[in-house]
Write a protein that binds this DNA or RNA. Structure first.
Lengths: 140, 140
DNA sequence: TGTACTGTAATATTAATTGTTACAGATAGG
DNA sequence: CCTATCTGTAACAATTAATATTACAGTACA
């Protein structure tokens, strides 16, 4: 799985703790240790789906436009990583009973796996993540 | 996810249809359209876990040593792809509340996700895959 | 009108996956 | 006991995917 999914979670969690002002991609990238352009790419997806709002120019940046408890990890997964579970297997041999049909069989199984994963991810909202982060932080 | 998992499934399904004789890595690789050395690598893992038996030399190869209904996809996943769901995110910024704790929080969530996925994969045995492949084949 | 942002494309770099070559060791059969 | 055919692995090459970087247009504010 590429890390756009975790980057999106990271960014939203960050924003959920900065509700009073906009955060720049530079600030978020410093927290996540990735290039600011990547943050902007991922956040532009989240923006298209209405989870955040952005503003260009001085004082601009990104800010949460929903309540953190309204956004769950499955929402984010579908935006950033839909189909990522599906392994990219090579086209197999059409002259072999196994090769000719395996791909379709596995495809449908992985579709099911992703939906099943969704049931799990739906249980976690960004608010939950914020709480877990705070919780871990107090232990240090 | 790398495709060792699907390769293992492909190979075992192939073997499940060739119970009367040993199959060479060449034969399996032809069905799966990958290099025979990769087949040998993956199958050596399955051998270590007792799912198959191998024999070197003339007339050698691989053969199933269990009943296809005794091996499920979760068994195979753990052997070939354990931890594959875990995204490899960069170490994040320790000076930031989010950065410092996110990694641990996400780690435990992905552990849970993998276990949840396991519940789904347990529902499919190699026998089920064989049946599905045969079923698809009859439609053509 | 200059400065500080986002948005996005194009390119470069790095890392992961896969393929290839090479060869030691096992085994059956002549 | 010698040769052909297989597995088992390691080392290396090639390919592909992920990520970083650079560049620049567009927007907003002061």
């Amino acid at each position: 799985m590429n890390s756009d999914f975790t980057l999106a979670i990271h960014s939203l969690t960050y924003l959920a703790l900065q509700l009073d002002h906009m955060s720049t991609s530079d600030a978020i990238s410093e927290s996540a240790c990735v290039h600011p352009v990547r943050i902007r790419k991922v956040l532009s997806l989240l923006k298209k789906h209405g989870f955040i709002v952005s503003k260009e120019g001085i004082g601009g940046g990104f800010i949460f436009s929903k309540d953190a408890s309204e956004v769950n990890l499955w929402d984010i997964y579908r935006i950033t990583s839909d189909g990522a579970l599906q392994p990219k297997c090579p086209d197999s041999n059409e002259d072999c009973v196994v090769g000719a049909n395996m791909q379709k069989v596995l495809f449908s199984i992985f579709i099911g796996a992703e939906q099943h994963l969704g049931q799990y991810l739906k249980n976690y909202t960004i608010k939950d993540i914020v709480d877990l982060v705070n919780q871990k932080n107090q232990l240090c």
